[in-house]
Design a protein around this nucleic acid. Structure first.
Lengths: 154, 154
DNA sequence: AACCTTAATTTAACATGTTAAGCATTGCCG
DNA sequence: CGGCAATGCTTAACATGTTAAATTAAGGTT
């Protein structure tokens, strides 16, 4: 449908240079590097995010984990069951509010984090080196700003 | 596990201010705005991306669509079948290479694009207004640069 | 032409994303 | 205290993500 140079340039920007796809593409390429060190240990990216959140909080209910790990409640519900089955977390009912489910990381989880973190740091450092430390910091700032702008409903 | 202010600040940056999650979070918030206009018409975000690519190329094999829409082959294979069932594309075998599957958009697809595009443009304009035109352009440039840096294997 | 390798998709199997319903527990209000 | 809306989570159902294996067609070699 588009054949002239001008049209191609226009069309290219239409889908390729669109924020949602640009974000997706960048993320895909990033995860290509991180995923192997997780799959070697038999855990998924989402399971890893949950473990990290719990490592930082020590204990959290599903809502808090969902917000911090950026995972929707239905997915999280399944992931927590999986992690419990793997012996990486324990699940309890909140004694002060019977609706809430509290998760706590196990020692196995802590060990896994100690094992994976160094490799993860190396990969991140490599990305930082290739892309530029300042540019990466600015990118993170801009992304935070975008989130801030989008969170204000109106 | 972390209770002092310093630790919190450190831990916060650990998961929250991480590139993969920052990209994911920004994308989620963005799609919250776009998804409704798609789901109203009964199509998903991925189906929409495929339709847009076909609208620009006119005809394409699976590999080209996958690359441009940023969708993995197995997912695309299912999506193409769905779109064909909905009457939004037609599927053919490439006469010059029997391994390839060619997709072509139908008129119904073109109509849907004409219907959705204006609303999509409005939303995008709103985001641009809230976030800033220059900042958004810079963000897109930075994301492109990141992709470029990550694509060079080494 | 038979054979091997590569390439383009597709299937299969399991995990997660997405939306809508369903279930229990709380908290509030009359 | 009974009733009820709101809250927190879980199920269900379907679509996509992810990896590995299977399928079919091209291309090249002998």
């Amino acid at each position: 449908m588009s054949n002239t140079t001008d049209e191609d340039a226009f069309e290219l920007s239409a889908t390729r240079r669109t924020l949602p796809i640009a974000l997706l593409r960048a993320r895909e390429l990033l995860m290509e590097r991180f995923r192997p060190i997780l799959s070697e240990r038999g855990i998924t990216e989402q399971q890893w995010r949950v473990m990290r959140v719990l490592h930082e909080t020590g204990e959290a209910d599903a809502s808090e984990i969902a917000e911090k790990a950026c995972i929707l409640a239905p997915s999280l519900s399944r992931i927590l069951k999986t992690l419990e089955a793997k012996g990486l977390i324990t699940l309890h009912r909140d004694p002060e509010d019977g609706r809430r489910t509290l998760s706590r990381p196990t020692e196995a989880s802590a060990a896994l984090i100690r094992e994976i973190t160094p490799e993860s740091v190396d990969i991140y450092a490599d990305v930082e080196a290739k892309f530029g430390r300042e540019k990466l910091a600015r990118l993170l700032d801009d992304l935070d700003a975008l989130v801030g702008a989008l969170e204000d409903r109106g």
